[in-house]
Design a protein around this nucleic acid. Structure first.
Lengths: 364, 364
DNA sequence: TGTGTTTACGTCAACGTTGACGTAGATGAG
DNA sequence: CTCATCTACGTCAACGTTGACGTAAACACA
């Protein structure tokens, strides 16, 4: 493989297509144009546009009118380039999938905090693809983003060391950084899964199955650890058949649950490691006619979990809180806080709604 | 009120806070630094960084090493400024609320289409606040965004005329532009609501209530029109008591439904004009013990609507499709398409799941 | 009235990059 | 060997804006 160039690679076809396409975007007028029309110097226009003092009311008015006539718009790029320590005003948010409620909720909370400081969010979905992560990070660095929020798809993060050293505020969310010491806001996934499993065991269950996502995903791994820790504490022997990982879709979850239920010694309770797995599991219980007969705790909460039949007992992560926390750290860093990395770990909670309190069948 | 300045207003406090804060972000190294270290001119560095020809292998290697040593990163801002018709690579997406499944799903689909062309999405929630819309649009214009996707909070859009004339690709989503002739992708809300209402009427209902959002929101208005059109077609007299608008929250929806059900001549079916209203309504039916006794059609579909008890009959809008369509138009425009505005209107569909097929009680 | 200060401008250079163009040396054709 | 051509660079200016600094006129004050 050829060593990649650092910036954007020259692309000949673009030029061709563009000139072929026809309507180039007409050039925006600049301060120079406004200055000419108003009969003043560019610098004076700059002053008026920026609301700085040093312009008489008359000149000010002339300039504003000229600007309006010419549809003048301030060019933030040029301004940022010229100004000393100017910020770009952009924060990158690289999340798992902007379309799912967890990422979307987080993004929303983050946006609210950052808006206070006039920062905009450039959002991207990584879909667990490490290469996309690298590409987008590189783009954001080239854009001189003021900060980065990362729910990493990659598992090693040394490549960010130089950016972090260069002073780029970097906050990991939901997953911890590896090979890099920076701020992070995570949820104690081990604790959550342990809570859930212990709750089921306390309800009398001995055969609790767990369905989980790709093991390479840190949160998935932590949840599995929590599940196993609860079994150990309850002195229940771990049955490898009851732990299914790499469940990636709703359909797969349905199949797995259906399969498990048809085994000779089926589980009497399920812990589902992710929303789409929970949904797939509920579907399986429905079609197997096992609603109300098999217990289920989902990880994590979602909008209508209380309206589903049965109402779902879940482990809840406070998305809003996570996003707010991330935003706050970012603002602090931008404000000059150069203290040691903060590692915020939030505790998830168990929300009891019914599905997790179904008792095991009377022993046979 | 003082006439606002055009660009960013000078903010003295920022400067103070910043210098007080301590660690200014250390300056990134530039091509000049790399050039010095490699013993070549800046222009040659530029060539190598951009993968252009005109540099010997030896020089190329020296430059790349120097760049690495100095943690050099291409400055896209400066590059864009200098290049001729260069694009900023940013598209603004101003949606209602990035946290809700409709906006989030749309954003996700849009992102996928735009990524193909190397465009990034700057996302923002408007929360039905026209002023915020203006502010963010102005910011994006100053950033020289390559395009704008707008689910407007404002009801007049003349203020965008100049930007549109200046060649800024502009696509309205979900709501039509007013006072501006530009591309849009909307859903036929009137048709959707009519379908829903007609479906309930066909099931034997004569007293169908509708709960709707703020009347100033276009989609809400259209849905009300659809509801009324269906009544007219069925020759059912419109009862103003059965139409409640400006229902803004889940709790409010619950209260309204509860209240309607306690009236002397209660509705036997409900059409809920928005997701949170649907959820609130289901809650009301639950606590009133009317599940399975009162019919309900929701507008629109959401992730778990089929798992709720009763499974919800809904009007579905294909979010993914909407987002893709918007993205495609944007790409076409960026590719030079200067044809007349496109007005894509998608048809929603009725998804039958049970709640909408509950018959009215036998007449008393 | 003279002198210092303020106000309202203007000039110039620089931010980091790249297009246009120049040039010295290498290469090739005849 | 000559002259045209090509290659690998370099120089310069410009993109749109703003900081630093200059200056002429107005103003303040003793």
């Amino acid at each position: 493989m050829v060593k990649a160039s650092i910036g954007n690679t020259a692309d000949m076809t673009t030029t061709l297509t563009y000139s072929g396409g026809g309507n180039e975007r007409p050039a925006r007028s600049t301060m120079k144009d406004v200055a000419r029309l108003a009969g003043v110097s560019v610098k004076t226009v700059s002053r008026v546009v920026n609301g700085e003092p040093g312009a008489s009311a008359a000149v000010r008015e002339r300039i504003l009118q000229a600007a309006e006539r010419l549809d003048y718009r301030h060019n933030l790029g040029a301004s940022t380039l010229r100004r000393k320590g100017a910020r770009s005003g952009i924060v990158g948010a690289l999340l798992q999938d902007i379309g799912n409620s967890f990422s979307a909720g987080l993004l929303r909370a983050l946006e609210d905090v950052l808006r206070e400081d006039g920062l905009s969010v450039l959002a991207a979905s990584l879909d667990e693809e490490p290469e996309r992560e690298r590409g987008i990070v590189s783009d954001l660095v080239a854009r001189r983003a003021d900060g980065l929020v990362l729910m990493p798809a990659s598992d090693r993060h040394e490549y960010l060391l130089s950016e972090h050293r260069a002073g780029l505020p970097l906050v990991f969310v939901d997953r911890r950084p590896h090979g890099l010491d920076c701020d992070s806001v995570t949820v104690d996934n081990l604790l959550g899964a342990k809570l859930a499993t212990a709750h089921l065991i306390a309800g009398g269950h001995r055969r609790v199955a767990m369905l989980s996502d790709l093991q390479q995903i840190e949160t998935a791994k932590d949840r599995i650890d929590g599940y196993r820790a609860a079994l150990v504490e309850a002195r229940i022997e771990f049955d490898p058949d009851l732990l299914v990982h790499s469940v990636r879709s709703e359909e797969e979850a349905t199949r797995v649950v259906t399969d498990l239920l048809s085994r000779p010694d089926p589980p009497t309770a399920f812990l589902t490691g992710r929303n789409i797995i929970t949904v797939g599991a509920v579907r399986a219980l429905r079609s197997a006619g096992m609603i109300g007969k098999v217990a289920l705790v989902g990880y994590d909460d979602f909008p209508l979990a209380d309206l589903v039949e049965p109402a779902l007992t879940v482990i809840r992560q406070d998305v809003r809180r996570i996003g707010t926390e991330v935003g706050q750290i970012l603002l602090d860093r931008l404000g000059g806080d150069s203290g040691p990395p903060r590692r915020v770990v939030l505790e998830p909670s168990l929300v009891i709604r019914g599905s997790g309190e179904i008792p095991p069948p009377v022993a046979g």
